[in-house]
Amino acid sequence: MSDAVLPLRRAAPIGEALAGLMLTAPAAIAYAVMLLLPTLAAVALAFTDYELGMPGFAWIGLDNFSELLADRGFAVSLRNTVIYVGIVTPLSIALGLGAALLIEAGIRGRALFRAVFFLPVVSLTVAMAAAWQYLLHPTIGPLNAALRRLGIADPPFWLSSSDWVLASLAAIGVWENLGYTMVLFLAGLTAIPRELYAAAQMDGARRAVDRFRLVTWPLLGPTTLFVVTITLIRSVRVFDTVAVLTQGGPNRASEVLLYTMYREGFTYLRLGYSAAITLVFLVIVLGLVWLQTKALDRKIHYG
């Protein structure tokens, strides 16, 4: 590139530059006020002892974080979140993929079943949590009524049992997420060329399993990676069902990251401490995205 050409290429017409700035200005202002500054403030808050309603605050360095490390409540909350994510992500991906494959495998009932599995995604989570609460109610719930009829004398108390509460919440999480993963997998499946399946048949892939291993699974690779990341992030964010159904109980058995952050910040008004938890949450999300980009670079991209 010669010097003579460079200015020509760089200098946009003044009108165009002006238009560009004007058109981005509203978004830029909103971005600064509603996203950038608050996020930076949240990061800064994490290093203070700020409490809502108190007159001032002090910079306390990493004290919030060392308190987090010592806080048994936080450790439980982190552990619960990991368990919740560990159940919800694989199950909702496996079931979503299974549903997508079954729907794609034939013509009958496609629209119907797609709609059925997708319904939880568009349903008001709070309302459906209430429905689950009734369904899982220890004494009057249909699930335990059915279990008792099957001869199980004292079925679990589900949401009110510290042994079962995480599993119950995870079941609701899977129910909420499987329609979402299914839709993404369906989009991925339609992008696979039909001729590859014909070629696989000719090449001797007799059984559906062989064709799945030879064609579907590898070609779904990029979709699967994306679905894994987004499902991880969605399930790390679990909040609504906990806030509605258990408030972290019984006995902290369902305390999860965002709920702890909410309680510290908006119930106890310890904003500095809450911001520190938010930062941990942010680091986890960023870490997941980073892993996805690494994996994408590494492998699943077929040039």
Partner: peptide
């Protein structure tokens, strides 16, 4: 079934498996 007919086919789009190397593609049958 197609797999049991002892026929090979060259497709218009070639239908090569994009995730396999050339050697692996040829080896599939």
């Amino acid at each position: 079934r197609a797999a049991d007919r002892d026929i090979a086919m060259v497709f218009q789009s070639y239908a090569l498996y994009p995730h396999l190397t050339v050697a692996q593609n040829i080896a599939v049958p």
